[in-house]
Design a protein around this nucleic acid. Structure first.
Length: 294
DNA sequence: CGTAGACCCTGCGCGC
DNA sequence: TGCGCGCAGGGTCTAC
């Protein structure tokens, strides 16, 4: 479900609700996510203030202040394909307060906050992740250690985002189609199946083209397209195809701006003549215009 | 070493 | 109405 824009929209929507509050209690109803949830590790964070929300790749980072001699910890959430994270007000029942055993279907982890609010993690397919890491060890954690460049420019650690030079250098000595290359998190993070197709369409590059056969100028176009499509999607609140909602339950609107994804058979929005084609690469659907993309 | 494919899991929409 | 099939925005592991 969520790619970089959706996680960033979620982060921004949750930030004002969470920062300044404290984690009070943690309920793990179903620990069997992509990796088993460590109940005790989560409970050990009870009482700690939430200091900041950050995003790295498609991971949401909830930073918690250290207590006494203890260093700060970070609560990490990944939504996988079907995850959602929402805040509810104190007393705003999601159907679980009375009979705390069951809870709404697929609501696997609930964080009670000192304010009485609750942060609820729901994930039907259970491809998501919830875990904790000492904040100072975050860069070395196996989930983060091998990640590539953040595609969007950042000021916090200064970064200019993904550039043509970054892509071209990463492609050196590699083979394979550019679409799967774009989705390789060791190269650039946050670009999933929707935005890979969209960025290639904007750049006019065929998704099946080998990375060994892309000139410098086109790498630049592609990097620009990646940044532009992700940035616009964030501005539109993300893409809600079926079940993406931000921390307050709001839908995204970028799906109406998608040029090719999910539009097989429709006329290309650029040339107006050729129908959008769908192919399968690495077991994932890819959409493109056979006329505009070479 | 890199790349291709299978796999984890549940729900939904479609054709019959 | 019911059933089976294919498909879904994630990442990782294995086999070549």
């Amino acid at each position: 479900m969520p790619e970089l824009p959706e996680v960033e929209v979620l982060r921004r929507s949750l930030e004002p609700w969470l920062v300044g509050d404290r984690l009070a209690a943690v309920t793990v109803r179903e620990p069997r996510l992509r990796e088993s949830v460590d109940r005790e590790a989560l409970r050990a964070l009870a009482g700690l203030p939430i200091t900041a929300l950050e995003r790295r790749a498609k991971y949401l980072l909830i930073h918690l202040e250290g207590a006494g001699e203890r260093a700060g910890h970070t609560l990490v959430v990944h939504l996988g394909m079907s995850g959602s994270l929402t805040v509810t007000e104190a007393g705003e029942a999601a159907g679980d307060e009375a009979g705390a055993a069951a809870g709404p279907k697929h609501e696997h982890v609930v964080f009670a906050l000192a304010s009485g609010r609750r942060l609820r993690f729901r994930d039907p397919r259970r491809f998501g992740l919830v875990f904790t890491v000492p904040t100072e060890r975050l860069p070395d954690d196996r989930h983060f250690a091998h990640l590539g460049v953040e595609p969007l420019a950042t000021s916090d650690p200064p970064g200019e985002g993904v550039t043509g030079a970054v892509l071209e250098a990463a492609a050196e000595g590699r083979r394979g189609p550019v679409k799967t290359f774009l989705m390789d998190a060791r190269v650039v993070v946050g670009v999933g199946n929707i935005y890979a197709s969209e960025a290639l369409f904007r750049a006019g590059i065929h998704p099946g083209r080998s990375v060994a056969r892309i000139a410098t100028r086109r790498w630049q176009r592609l990097a620009e397209a990646v940044r532009a499509v992700l940035q616009e999607a964030i501005t539109q609140g993300g893409t809600t195809l079926a079940d993406f909602f931000d921390g307050e339950g709001r839908r995204g609107y970028f799906q109406v701006s998608l040029s090719v994804y999910g539009r097989e058979g429709e006329p290309c929005p650029r040339c107006g003549s050729r129908p959008i084609r769908k192919i399968v690469q690495a077991n994932r659907s890819t959409f493109y215009c056979p006329g505009c993309q070479r």
